[in-house]
Amino acid sequence: MERHEMEAFLTLAEELHFRRTSERLGLAQGRVSQTIRKLERHIGAPLFERTSRKVTLTPVGERLRDDLLPAYQQMRRALADAAAAARGTRGVLRVGYSSPMAAELLLKAADELSVRCPGSEVRIREIQLSDPLGPIRSGQVHLQVTELPVDEPDLAVGPVVITEDRRLLVHRDHPFARSATVTLEDLAATTLITFAAPPYWQEFHCPRQTPSGRPVPHLVAGNWQEAAAMVGAGRGVTFASARAEQYHARPDTVWLPFPHLPRIEYAPVWPRDGRTPLVEAFLQILKPVK
């Protein structure tokens, strides 16, 4: 039995309808009928009962379907595995994230990659804001979804996949918590908790001066959990994306709207010389969160 005969028979055995079978196979309906008749002549018995109302399998057809289907599915898996190996899309892809929102996005993409690229595996890990680019430069991850901006000559940046409103986190007893609005100028009256990130990232997210030129005191945290604890202890304020409150809300902390700085954006980042077929396949799956 040739492959096209096997596909025609198994598709018709599933659909039990010649028109739908021809549409699925992309063949003319007459071609499907011709293939089935040829197969029946070869076997020496009808495989289908045909009437003007319906198509059903004969007992011989049912037995052939049950015997052929496992072998056909195994053949398709083998072909898919071979194609994946040829494309270089087998193996482990290590992916980093810097926020729980990004982790959810990556887990969904990992499930899709396993379907599209049999033999692939995605392992994800959290990237600390105290060393946001260290793991990708050392090869600990092949790709990461992280806060922008990233402006490094050795790293490529993909399209934005998450965009979030900005929030200012303050202790519940902080004067800002009782203010109708908090502006950039007000930051001079407090301490802004930030991270050991590149200077351009610091300036984008945590300005050192107000618009009038007043200095904004800074305090560096080792990671996000430490920054949240420092806010809860009344040692300063910090910024976060709005949806992060779902994961990091605390009874001692108030999340205030802060539209005076750009919204926080997240995008995939990878080494410029590291866009492997597996990285490429994963990037094609990542879609912006609506």
Rank of each mutant, 00 (worst) to 15 (best):
Pro159Thr: 07
Asn223Arg: 12
Asp81Gln: 09
Leu16Phe: 04
Phe9Leu: 12
Val182Thr: 11
Phe9Trp: 12
Val237Gln: 04
Glu49Cys: 06
Val95Ser: 04
Pro257Asn: 09
Glu62His: 13
Thr191Tyr: 01
His42Tyr: 05
Lys54Leu: 09
Leu184Ile: 04
Arg24Gly: 02
Leu57Arg: 05
Lys38Asn: 14
Leu283Val: 14
Phe282Ser: 11
Val122Cys: 04
Gly134Tyr: 10
Val150Tyr: 10
Arg63Cys: 02
Tyr200Cys: 05
Thr89His: 05
Glu2Pro: 01
Arg41Asn: 11
Glu14Gly: 15
Pro135Leu: 14
Leu64Lys: 12
Arg76Thr: 01
Ala83Arg: 15
Phe195Cys: 08
Ala83Phe: 02
Glu126Asp: 02
Trp270Ile: 13
Cys206Tyr: 09
Val115Leu: 08
Tyr200Pro: 00
Arg20Gly: 02
Phe176Asp: 08
Leu148Phe: 06
Leu143Asp: 10
Glu40Ser: 03
Leu278Pro: 03
Asp67Gln: 11
Glu203Ala: 15
Leu286Lys: 00
Glu112Met: 00
Arg125Lys: 10
Ala249Pro: 01
His218Ser: 08
Gly232Gln: 00
Ser212Tyr: 02
Ile162Ala: 05
Arg65Gly: 12
Gly88His: 03
Arg37Gly: 10
Ser114Lys: 15
His171Ser: 07
Lys108Leu: 10
Glu203Asp: 15
Phe239Asn: 04
Glu147Thr: 10
Tyr97His: 15
Thr181Trp: 10
Gln225Asn: 06
Val237Arg: 00
Leu39Cys: 08
Gln225Ala: 07
Pro153Arg: 03
Val161Pro: 05
Leu192Ile: 05
Glu104Asn: 07
Leu286Asn: 00
Ala244Trp: 14
Leu129Glu: 03
Gly30Val: 11
Gly234Thr: 13
Arg19Ile: 11
Ala71Phe: 06
His17Glu: 13
Ile43Pro: 01
Arg87Ala: 05
Gly119Met: 13
Arg272Lys: 14
Ile193Ser: 03
Val170Cys: 13
Arg250Gly: 04
Val216Gly: 01
Ser99Asp: 07
Val55Arg: 01
Arg178Leu: 05
Thr210Arg: 00
Arg275Met: 14
Ala13Val: 14
Ala78Met: 08
Ala189Asn: 13
Gly274Gln: 09
Ala84Ser: 11
Ala109Val: 09
Val157Lys: 00
Thr89Trp: 04
Leu283Trp: 12
Asp273Ser: 13
Phe48Ile: 07
Gly222Val: 11
Ala197Lys: 11
Glu40Val: 03
Pro257Val: 08
Ile285Ser: 10
Ala109Asn: 05
Phe18Asn: 03
Ala110Pro: 04
Ala86Gly: 06
Glu112Asn: 02
Leu192Pro: 00
Arg63Leu: 11
Gly26Cys: 02
Ala103Arg: 14
Arg208Gly: 01
Asp173Val: 08
Arg235Glu: 07
Pro149Glu: 09
Glu5Trp: 14
Ala177Asn: 01
Pro46Ser: 13
Ser120Ile: 09
Ala83Ser: 09
Tyr266Ser: 12
Arg24Leu: 14
Asp151Trp: 05
Arg53Ser: 07
Gly26Ala: 03
His171Tyr: 07
Tyr266Val: 08
Arg166Phe: 03
